[in-house]
Simulated assay, not measured.
Amino acid sequence: MTDGNITTGANLISIGTSTANLGTVSHTDGSVIGDIRRWFDSNTSSNVVFTVGTVDYYRPAYISYTTAPTSGGTLTASFNASDPTMNGLTLDDGGNIIEATAIEGYWPINAGDGLAGGTYDVDLTATGLGVIDYTQLWLLKRANAASPWTLNGTHETATGSNEEPTVHRNGLSGFSEFAVGGKAGALPVELVEFNAACENGIVKLNCATISEINNDYFIVEKSTDLIHYYEVSRIKGSGNSNSLKYYSALDKKPFFSQSYYRLKQVDYDGTIRTFHPIALKCDNFENSEPEILVYPNPFNSELNIVFDNISECKAKIEIINEMGKTIITQEAYIENSAYTEKLDLNKLPPAVYYLKVIAKDQVFNIKVIKQ
């Protein structure tokens, strides 16, 4: 690989064809976003690289067999950019207490084609985690997504830098899933809990941290599609802390449909870290009022209108200028209780406008800004 990323989708990249033809990899730039498969024979090996990562970050895995496999075969690896959770934590590794996982993702590495036996060392380069002290990072292992994180093999102190740390673990056996864990103070904000619950038409959100460094505040956001998010509230952080801290927020106007909530953590210097969303669907919102939301606002060319808790009907949409003149009129058919209508307003000159929506004998007025 010399430039750019490769996205495999439902396919995979296979290096080599058999235990007699292992193949080679040369890498200077880019990541494989998806599965990459490599062949191993029944000999020891050193730093066999899996060039995986995300669109923005190269996060390779390296496998070195220190005791030869009893039979050759393949390993298939990827980087899964989703929350590894903290199931099984805390962990005690010779008096070193591992309290959190890096939320940015984890590495599934699975054996196939008859690969068995042997012991190996694994190195994971975890670029872009916002690490505070890379020497306090640990490599964790679990059987699958439903299993707790464990400590298999022997720890070796991480190398590299806070920007590009590499975690090491030696003398492991068996393959499954791997992640980066940290002692207190290793990661910028160590989140141990984030949940949401419906109570009398209001969503109550709770979170807890066990460590914070330079934490100015949290932003709570919600979404119906995991793409477009709306700010619910801001919560003041604790700055620097090594003790358990609890936070809560209320969403007094939750979406009627399936919703997703997420946290953003903002440092004093403006650095933002986004945690993975949680899903929630409340069944006791019969009395919730219909609501219209728009995004983005301000907008450049397209404006999206979200009809929340408005059942199937025909809606009238108007764009009104500051002189009170209606300059655009169109109709939309609301197909469900969480419907989004997209308006192409590219030809409008930059200015302040007023969006008027009439649906089910209700009138909604929202100020919008064209940039």
Rank of each mutant, 00 (worst) to 15 (best):
289 E>D: 12
59 R>I: 08
20 A>V: 05
83 D>K: 09
217 Y>A: 00
339 Y>W: 14
227 I>V: 12
155 H>P: 02
20 A>Y: 12
248 S>D: 11
177 E>L: 02
315 A>S: 10
15 I>K: 03
274 T>D: 04
157 T>N: 12
169 R>G: 09
156 E>N: 13
312 E>N: 12
163 E>N: 15
334 I>R: 08
202 I>E: 13
361 D>G: 09
201 G>C: 05
366 I>T: 13
103 I>K: 14
52 V>Y: 05
307 F>P: 06
48 V>L: 00
18 S>T: 08
234 R>Y: 01
338 A>N: 14
317 I>R: 07
157 T>G: 09
285 F>H: 06
301 S>V: 05
124 L>F: 01
48 V>S: 00
268 Y>R: 15
6 I>P: 08
1 M>L: 04
23 G>Y: 00
203 V>W: 10
331 E>W: 09
193 E>S: 11
337 S>T: 15
245 K>R: 15
230 Y>W: 10
163 E>C: 09
289 E>K: 15
111 A>I: 01
300 N>I: 11
116 A>Q: 14
46 S>P: 04
217 Y>Q: 06
289 E>P: 03
171 G>E: 11
171 G>M: 08
286 E>K: 15
328 I>L: 15
84 P>N: 01
194 F>Q: 08
240 N>L: 08
369 I>C: 09
39 W>D: 05
157 T>V: 13
84 P>D: 00
286 E>L: 11
274 T>L: 10
52 V>R: 07
46 S>R: 10
107 W>P: 08
210 I>H: 14
307 F>Y: 13
153 G>I: 12
79 F>M: 03
344 D>R: 13
133 D>W: 08
336 N>E: 12
140 L>S: 10
19 T>K: 13
220 V>Q: 00
8 T>A: 10
50 F>W: 01
335 E>M: 14
358 I>T: 12
43 N>T: 11
61 A>G: 05
89 L>W: 06
346 N>W: 09
359 A>Y: 04
38 R>S: 02
236 K>G: 10
298 P>K: 04
328 I>N: 15
100 A>S: 14
148 P>C: 04
238 S>H: 14
73 G>M: 02
215 N>Y: 02
198 C>D: 06
150 T>F: 09
140 L>H: 07
296 P>T: 01
362 Q>A: 10
229 Y>Q: 03
172 L>S: 06
216 D>W: 06
295 Y>R: 03
108 P>N: 11
371 Q>R: 14
74 T>S: 02
246 Y>L: 11
187 L>V: 00
280 L>W: 02
280 L>T: 00
306 V>M: 11
265 Q>V: 14
113 D>Y: 10
232 V>K: 02
30 G>R: 02
150 T>G: 14
20 A>C: 04
273 R>P: 00
264 K>M: 09
118 G>C: 03
145 A>E: 14
146 A>N: 14
43 N>P: 06
186 A>E: 03
215 N>E: 07
129 L>A: 04
178 F>Q: 03
281 K>V: 11
307 F>V: 03
273 R>K: 09
153 G>P: 12
16 G>V: 05
344 D>V: 07
259 S>I: 04
177 E>T: 00
